[in-house]
């Protein structure tokens, strides 16, 4: 964007677009923010992935420490949040890619896509954890 402070040809200062806080919060806007927040959370979450792989490579003792932490209530909460963030960002990313092809941008479509992201990510998280507990018998 051009510098908003720059004078126009007739010397008048340019009008500024409304500030972020002046907009009414919409679902698409909230999902956009959520995409950025989950992206940032996953960014730091990659430390967990590295920790997991290093622990396995380091041997049974290191792995036991990690398994204990991930099995604790706090560890499970982190993993549950990580599952949701990953699914939400994945679905949100697909939505972004659809929008990049100029599809799904009509008012009703884009609301539906945004809602689908939220419902889909929460639903899939519950399904995955349900499978984890029911089929695989929780922590083995």
């Amino acid at each position: 964007m051009a510098d908003p402070e720059a004078p126009t040809v007739d010397g008048a200062s340019r009008p500024l677009s409304p500030h972020l806080q002046i907009y009414r919060l919409t679902l698409t806007m909230a999902m956009s923010i959520a995409h950025r927040l989950t992206g940032a959370a996953l960014y730091f979450g990659m430390v967990l992935v590295a920790w997991w792989l290093i622990a396995v490579a380091a041997g049974p003792n290191a792995y036991a420490g990690l398994a204990w932490f991930m099995g604790s209530l706090f560890g499970r909460l982190i993993l549950f949040g990580y599952t949701w963030a990953l699914l939400h960002h994945l679905l949100g990313g697909i939505r972004h890619l659809i929008w990049d092809t100029l599809h799904g941008l009509e008012p009703v479509e884009r609301e539906r896509l945004a809602a689908a992201t939220l419902v889909g990510s929460i639903g899939l998280t519950i399904v995955i954890w349900g499978i984890g507990y029911l089929v695989m018998g929780g922590s083995r």
Binding site: V56, Y63, A64, T83, G132, S139
Partner: peptide
Amino acid sequence: TIAFMIIVIALMGRGHAAVA
């Protein structure tokens, strides 16, 4: 990412030797 999730779920709760 889907493959990664499947791998993690498949390894969940297994012993060190199997995971490695």
